[in-house]
Amino acid sequence: MSELIAQEALPGLVAKWLAQGKRVAGPSVVKPGYCLYVELKSSAQLALEGFIRPRNSIKEFVFPHHEAICRYHFSGHTVETEDCDPPQVDQVIVGARPCDAAALPILDHLFTWDYEDKFYTERRKATTVVTLACQAHDDACFCTSLDLGPAAEQGSDVLLLAVPGGYEVRCLTDKGRALFAGETRTVEQTAVVPPGPPVMVAPGTIMAFLQARYDDPMWADLALRCLGCGACAYTCPTCHCFDIVDEGTAAGGCRVKNWDCCQFAMFTQHASGHNPRSGQSQRQRQRIQHKFRIYPEKFGVMLCTGCGNCARNCPVGLGVLSTLKETAGSAPVEVGV
């Protein structure tokens, strides 16, 4: 026994949410070969098939790449400031991948542990995540290595599973139930969850490796081809670093919170000119250490969902997975490969 929504009914439901004034986001093919999560203007934009996963992640709907947090203006010798409020818009993310949804509970730790970042938490509260289980995976996928899978439920309010003619609807939270109440019918069939990618690395061994080999020369070799862009971090569902900048004129301006990336040389550059992570090898090491040792030591969860976006978007094919494979068995590290 399961709840079912017909294939053709889903766009109608999306249109209904839009008509209710909700902000709806989901995968959309913005140009051939480029499927991205975008804010949907109409249900016709929604794409649920024909791609492994969007090239970006859903984090930008709870942690946008640019957010105004305070406005200021100078008057004489004083500065007047005015706090910006977190937005109060109900939003639905539909067609999220399980590896995207699973990132949200991971991010919750960071944005609430010592200071509650209202911009994040308010958005998160107002967000309902409708996840679509994966039917296929590619070489970059490794969710199963992180105890997730094609139908993982972490972070989702509703899990949809493709069945002939529609989607099985599994409501996991009250928010999810509210969204689909009265929209489904009960049927006999239940969905078959397709197999995920094979387990390729064991996070436990990686953590031990990272603890033991912080200064290993392998980091320098691994990082040689890294160009130092932010494509990996900016498309990662779990990367969350940001920078606070004042932008404006002599009259006043806005204090904004923008994404930042540990692979940029500027990320750790001090005002004095000293840079504690002066080389790309140190920056690459930081990225891996943070995801698989520092974050789990602090919060008990890996900062990765195995979505593989880092590898897919890397200009030079350098992903977290390839690095983990290098480190996994403490195998001798090959020069520069």
Partner: peptide
């Protein structure tokens, strides 16, 4: 998204 991959590459 200002990842600057265009610049770095």
């Amino acid at each position: 998204i200002r990842c600057y991959a265009c610049r770095e590459v």
